[in-house]
Design a protein around this nucleic acid. Structure first.
Length: 492
RNA sequence: GGCGCCAUCGCCAAGUGGUAAGGCAAGGGUCUGCAAAACCCUCAUUCCCCGGUUCGAAUCCGGGUGGCGCCUCCA
């Protein structure tokens, strides 16, 4: 593992500067990362999952590279949409939020996402939010108006620098409306005055609740300091959410909020972004009921994180089939290595070459899609050694296989795959396919036994007829010296 | 209208100035009683179109065409 200082080559695309920059942490060897988490008013969908998976891999790779990473991913549990959803289901907003926080944790754990170091909730951080609003009021960057508090965009010269928009043009667009309460149509709420039946907290300027953007500013700075290294989220958060965070934090502290801003591309459904407002969402938990979590991760990582990715059942099926190839190879390698004592011997090939190629890809703005080429090459090499070894010395082949097997681990660790034992994963997949096709194990085993007898009697016609019958059921046979193994094909 | 993104083999996809990664599918082969799996080979003189810059462009610039996003909640 390379020391962080020795990898100045790690490049990250920064939305703020719109170019790739060398990652140069504010504190040597340490990366402080904040990712905007979900607003908990419903279940997470695959679009959200894609973003969180992308940052999960960012964290894993930075740690693999030797950085100490502090990863904060918030839970927004006070919000208009939560209140709306709670009213619709005649539930306390707090309870509804709790319910979806729990669902989020379950779903995201099933996806294999690492726990963030801190997962702060708005309701647990009101003092910091109140303090930030007060600070902005004191600085003249905000004003109270009938119990609401607004941020004064005109008091902050750098407004919208992240989205690279022109303030005048934003004003010309629809936007909000200036009126008795808002001085400028672009001003946004830091605090919303209490309304009947809504959650509210005491504040010097009147009871109410925080506006949408203030919580991220307050919590990010509380847990990471200001400035910190990387702030991330989906592309749709650039404006206004991240621009507003920047405005609030920088106007209050006269220092940058974050050095690098990273944004993930959209997951699309039939040429439209997957979003709750369009109603074209697939929930993460529903997807995980149909496809393996690691296969889903492989699908997310098949395209660069900033590019749009189109969702399809076929792509998911392909990803799971690819994962099956990986696990089958791992199982074969493990079986081979368990066969007998191996004498130390010189290994074949250039040790670590696949991993180095992977690192080159990942160093270039976390290009996991490109990095998968190295992963495939590594597996092809293992299969080659298994079936067509280039030398006859068994110890050399075995030692090389052991070395390559060890090289697989970092890939798995960074991408969040290969976390199951091969045998267990393959069994799990077969069980699921058996169930999906409504197959009868006893009958399959009986047919295989019958075929074995036919083969022993050299009755090839009978044996082939039985194999064809099994193939019709979706069962595929693999004859070997050890006997006949069977698997189930995934497509009817 | 403003800001921004995308267009690469049948499908997915990397590559953003030095002569087209990888996966899936397809065809051929090795292996096999026959298969399957695995491996090997083949599979884009070409990167939406038209101009330009350059010794050199999928990559840069200008202009089109098509698709998408943000500007209102959104990962």
């Amino acid at each position: 593992m390379a020391a962080p200082e020795s990898s100045p080559s790690l490049k990250v695309f920064n939305t703020l500067t719109q170019r790739k920059e060398s990652l140069d942490p504010l504190r040597p060897g340490e990366v402080r990362l904040y990712v905007c988490g979900p607003t908990v008013y419903s279940y997470v969908h695959l679009g959200n999952a894609r973003t969180f998976t992308a940052f999960d891999v960012v964290v894993r790779y930075l740690r693999y590279r030797g950085y100490r990473v502090t990863y904060v991913r918030n839970l927004t549990d006070v919000d208009d949409r939560i209140i709306q959803a709670a009213q619709a289901s005649h539930e306390e907003p707090r309870l509804l939020a709790d319910r979806f926080v729990q669902a989020f944790d379950e779903d995201v754990r099933a996806l294999g996402l690492l726990e963030p170091d801190v997962a702060p909730r708005v309701t647990d951080n009101m003092p910091e939010i109140l303090a930030l609003v007060q600070k902005l009021l004191d600085a003249g960057a905000a004003y109270a108006s009938d119990g609401d508090v607004f941020f004064a965009v005109s008091a902050w010269p750098g407004y919208a620098k992240l989205s690279h928009r022109n303030v005048e043009e934003l004003r010309a667009g629809e936007g909000g409306v200036a009126g008795e309460r808002k001085r400028d149509s672009l001003d946004f709420a830091l605090w919303k005055a209490e309304k009947p039946g809504e959650p509210a907290w005491d504040a010097p300027w009147g009871r109410g609740r925080p506006g949408w953007h203030i919580e991220c500013s307050a919590m990010a700075v509380k847990f990471l300091g200001q400035p910190f290294d990387i702030h991330g989220g989906g592309l749709d958060l650039i404006f206004p959410h991240h621009d507003n965070e920047i405005a609030q934090s920088e106007a209050s502290a006269k220092a940058p909020l974050a050095k690098v801003w990273m944004h993930t591309g959209f997951l699309e459904m039939e040429n439209a972004k997957m979003s709750k407002s369009l109603g074209n969402v697939v929930r993460l938990r529903d997807a995980l009921a149909r496809v393996d979590a690691e296969a889903l991760r492989l699908f997310f990582l098949s395209s660069h994180y900033r590019n749009p990715l189109v969702f399809s059942e076929a792509a998911l099926t392909e990803a799971e089939r690819r994962l099956e190839y990986f696990y089958e190879t791992l199982q074969r390698v493990d079986e081979r290595l368990a066969l007998r004592e191996v004498q130390m011997a010189a290994t074949l090939g250039d040790s670590g070459r696949f991993l180095r190629a992977f690192e080159r890809s990942m160093d270039d703005d976390f290009n996991a899609a490109e990095g998968q080429a190295a992963l495939h090459a590594l597996f092809t090499e293992m299969n080659l050694l298994l079936d067509r070894p280039p030398v006859t010395d068994r110890d050399r082949v075995a030692c090389t296989l052991a070395e390559l097997r060890a090289e697989v681990r970092p890939f798995g660790q960074v991408l969040g795959i290969f976390q199951q034992s091969p045998a267990r994963w393959l069994e799990w997949r077969r069980d699921r396919l058996v169930e999906r096709r409504g197959l009868d194990r006893a009958r399959i085993e009986a047919l295989i036994a019958e075929r074995a007898a036919a083969r022993k009697a050299r009755d090839w016609a009978r044996a082939d007829a039985l194999r064809d019958a099994l193939a019709t059921l979706g069962v595929e046979l693999r004859d070997s010296a050890a006997g006949t193994a069977w698997k189930v094909r995934d497509e009817p």
